[in-house]
């Protein structure tokens, strides 16, 4: 009994002090700044003989990568949410079906192919990557917004209209807050997709953490692959933890 209480106490304290998040962040920062130490050790363990190429510093790759991810998430949530909210508010029934169909189609189309198709018009670099990640990221947010808003218990909508709210007040004060857990789940999915898909961007010259991975595959160098993959993994875990925290922060459920 006492043990159980103790565990609960430390768990709560851990939550309050952001222990997990801070730990992951520190690991990530150390990894980024001191990768050379790990590199030497890995060289011994994996018995890789290849010499090191002059590399763009890992810090720079991480920053490039984060910019690509954040820009894609920002644009896809802006477009996805606005579109979903408008479809809901103005009851565009046909457009709902169309959006779901189009989104479904988009997700089944390989990301690499979209990037490659965009290169001729946009050139090499981060632009085709961001655009294709946005196209991918919109769908989870759009459907989550539409479904979340649609599935709000009509009892509350009726009550708020009966109290004299107009359509937009019902949306802002009742529907949106009640749909927010579903919308947030969509944003989470979209972000995780972007984090992993952004590595493919290296194939069309966007740089970022995909660069060591892609180069590692080409030159058969596991150290390079790990150099890109480990930070990606840590960033994904960190993002997931942060979303979990936001989801837990609401007190009304």
């Amino acid at each position: 009994m006492n043990d159980k209480k103790n565990i609960e106490f430390w768990n709560n304290l851990g939550k309050k002090l952001w222990i997990k998040e801070i730990f992951l962040l520190i690991v990530l920062l150390v990894l980024i700044n001191e990768f050379s130490i790990l590199e030497l050790w890995l060289k011994d363990v994996l018995n890789v003989e290849k010499g090191f190429v002059e590399w763009i510093p890992l810090q720079k790759l991480v920053i490039q990568y984060l910019i690509i991810v954040l820009a894609s998430v920002l644009f896809s949530s802006l477009v996805g949410f606005t579109l979903g909210a408008l479809i809901h508010l103005y009851e565009w029934k046909g457009l709902r079906e169309f959006a779901i169909m189009l989104g479904g189609l988009g997700v089944t189309f390989p990301t690499v192919a979209i990037m490659a198709l965009l290169v001729p018009s946009m050139g090499y670099g981060y632009e085709p990557v961001v655009v294709s990640l946005v196209i991918y990221g919109i769908f989870p947010i759009l459907t989550a917004t539409m479904d979340g808003l649609r599935d709000v218990d009509q009892e509350f909508v009726l009550a708020s209209r009966a109290m004299g709210m107009n359509k937009f007040q019902v949306f802002r004060k009742v529907e949106l807050p009640l749909a927010s857990p579903v919308i947030l789940a969509g944003l989470r999915t979209s972000t995780i997709i972007s984090i992993s898909a952004a590595t493919i961007g290296a194939t069309v010259g966007a740089g970022g953490l995909g660069l060591p991975i892609v180069t590692g595959i080409r030159t058969n160098n596991p150290i390079l692959i790990l150099k890109g993959a480990l930070p990606v993994m840590l960033i994904a875990m960190l993002a997931d933890l942060l979303f979990y925290r936001v989801e837990q922060s609401k007190k009304w459920q």
Binding site: E155, F156, A159, M163, G164, K173, V174, L178
Partner: peptide, 15 residues
């Protein structure tokens, strides 16, 4: 509607 109070079964308080 703002000048008419309204209450329904199960109260429908906003959660």
């Amino acid at each position: 509607r703002r000048n008419m109070g309204y209450a329904i079964q199960g109260s429908a308080l906003f959660p």
